[in-house]
Nucleic acid binder design. Structure first.
Lengths: 360, 360
DNA sequence: GTCTGAAATCGTAGCGCTATTATTTTCAAA
DNA sequence: TTTGAAAATAATAGCGCTACGATTTCAGAC
């Protein structure tokens, strides 16, 4: 069309025939726009955003006004690239449907948000393979830290994490295995043992452990094992461990009680892998006219919100999911501020607490 | 200092005295490293990663091998900047501790992960102000979409969202108000009405609604209102609405039953804002020797996992949190693929379902 | 007046990748 | 062979920001 007409005032120096590239740019307001309007350079705007006290009050005010007027929202993607690291914390849990992890994630998110850190969430559905894929994606965001659940991960995942120099926190489990980097949690074997001892102290000898998804949920399996081992150590007959293949729900608990009643008529006490399972047991006992704790003592794990109100109120073990969240946040905040905790402080044992109520 | 001494073999064209800047670069493996090792240009690697079928099988194999050997993880931050948009979906819920939202977020996350989209999570704790701050941060990530809970947001938030050209999905609520962009959910007024009609059909006249945090949780408040309005419309006496200031738990339900029993001795039926509250009511009824549904009919909301197993099994209304998650994901996927649904399809009503069991 | 140092501000070079255009290679048809 | 189009690959210019060093400003000391 206008092949011959060339805009006269446009001289292209050292031209090699390059055409001005037309790139679909974001139509968003940039830092440069703010700078222009405030009558300063973009460096000053950037500085103001990161350390307002380093900019003169007058310039600061101009900039603040420009930001407000233009509705400027900084582009953290660009910032992350320039600063070689984003303000994202990747959190990978087995399932957010699980009230334990929901509690931890909620606390963690609140704590981290105060420091300007974002939580990116992933759930592995108890699959090591899925977890590895999630870790890979997480790493692609150059996160400030990665939070994983438990100490068991695929070999490739460990390798990936080790070679990336990112703070890693493993939570909700402490044990024989050394963490990749840092860990916040408690020993599940000890939890099982606490339950066993509590039953033993009350003179019960016929025990069972009712679990759900024990094959997938290695932490629940560890509690079951700790329970059985401690019972044996105390000279009791070996407790039977029952497993329900579906997720830990009240429904699973009710069914498990049915099964255990059929196979062990002399049963005196059951430890459950989860308060929801224990709740199901309580319901089923009511239906069958089994008195709790008279005929059967029932113990849960988790101290969920309903456990203090049930009939009878549930004796359970509290893992303090919120405390774990808080401690994980503390470690991450220390790392992002440059003072990585020394050796021993990189492992935090949040312990567990036996909450004695009426069911056992 | 070194004004006169110039390194002889270094000729700086059009020098203005610039010194070579030393910048702490990320020590991570870049696409360039992969390209070098595979003997191709970085463009080809980029192309291979996005459209493998566009590069020759031989080159593809070389690249794949190099990626494997070097343990290359693409930098999505850089990619997001270059492509002017990240593969992040920001999801903001009032509380992840709430089983409803946990269910939705979990489903959403699974669905979106299949498309290579990441979920970034935020929770507003039922505060419009916090939500606004979260939206601001979310926008800073140039997200592929933003998911909010409910239709009520601060004015500034609406403005922010409207001026950013990002797909926005509001979920868990449908009503008179038009959504900002898209919406997936159901009408809470209708839920309340369904509960009222169910009670009316059974001949109950003395009704009450037991809610928690009604001042913060506008959706629960809407259900309560819908319940009361429908009861009046059916010619029943106005139901009393009781509110508990703490979060919706079984404990709150138990306390509310105490209060309502004291003030309304002739009470026949209660609708609860949440299954957990209803569970607490059930527990308290057992303790007080109130037969359910004989002396008092109890209805919940949510159809949580324990509701089918309780004593008696809980009659409740199922909102289908997973369906909401699935539909939200569908809308977002359509948007990222460039085919934004037309007008009417941008609002999806997932409805609600009365689940009749034994408690009412 | 000049000098000095601290405070404030600015200019520039990337961060690692993608989009776009440019170039080379391939290969069937002429 | 030559040729032309299609396929494959390469070169280049940013994306919007931050880090770093350079430059300017402005008191107070001499």
């Amino acid at each position: 069309m206008n092949g011959s007409a060339i805009k006269s005032d446009f001289i292209e120096p050292s031209s090699e025939g390059h055409v001005r590239r037309q790139r679909r740019k974001m139509q968003r307001v940039t830092m440069m726009d703010v700078a222009k309007r405030a009558g300063v350079s973009s460096s000053t705007v950037s500085l103001y955003l990161r350390r307002p006290e380093a900019v003169s009050p007058m310039a600061g005010q101009e900039i603040a006004q420009a930001i407000e007027a233009l509705g400027y929202v900084p582009n953290l993607v660009a910032g992350g690239l320039a600063a070689a690291g984003s303000r994202v914390v990747s959190v990978i849990v087995p399932s957010i449907r699980n009230a334990f992890f929901a509690e931890t994630v909620a606390t963690l998110q609140t704590e981290l948000a105060a420091e300007g850190l974002q939580v990116m969430l992933g759930h592995s559905e108890y699959s090591e393979e899925d977890e590895e894929a999630l870790i890979r994606t997480a790493l692609a965001w150059a996160p400030a830290a990665i939070v994983l659940t438990g100490l068991r991960h695929s070999k490739a995942a460990r390798h990936l994490l080790a070679s990336a120099s990112v703070p890693v926190v493993e939570m909700w489990e402490l044990g024989a295995q050394a963490p990749i980097d840092m860990a916040v949690g408690f020993c599940h074997t000890a939890v099982g043992a606490t339950a066993a001892r509590h039953f033993a102290q009350q003179g019960f000898t016929q025990l069972a452990f009712l679990g759900a998804r024990l094959l997938q949920d290695s932490r629940a399996a560890t509690r079951a094992e700790g329970f059985a081992v401690e019972a044996l150590r105390l000279g009791l007959p070996e407790p039977q461990i029952l497993n329900h293949p579906a997720p830990a729900t009240a429904e699973a608990g009710a069914q498990l009680l049915g099964r255990v009643q059929a196979s062990l008529p002399k049963l005196q006490a059951v430890a459950c892998s989860n308060d929801l399972v224990a709740l199901g047991v309580l319901f089923e006992c009511q239906r069958r006219g089994i008195a709790v704790p008279g005929d059967l003592a029932v113990m849960g794990f988790g101290d969920l919100s309903f456990s203090s109100t049930s009939n009878p109120p549930l004796t359970t073990i509290r893992p303090s999911g919120d405390l774990i969240g808080r401690e994980v946040a503390r470690l991450i905040k220390a790392c992002t501020k440059g003072n990585r905790p020394p050796g021993a402080d990189r492992i935090v044992d949040t312990g567990h607490l036996l909450v004695e109520r009426k069911s056992a």
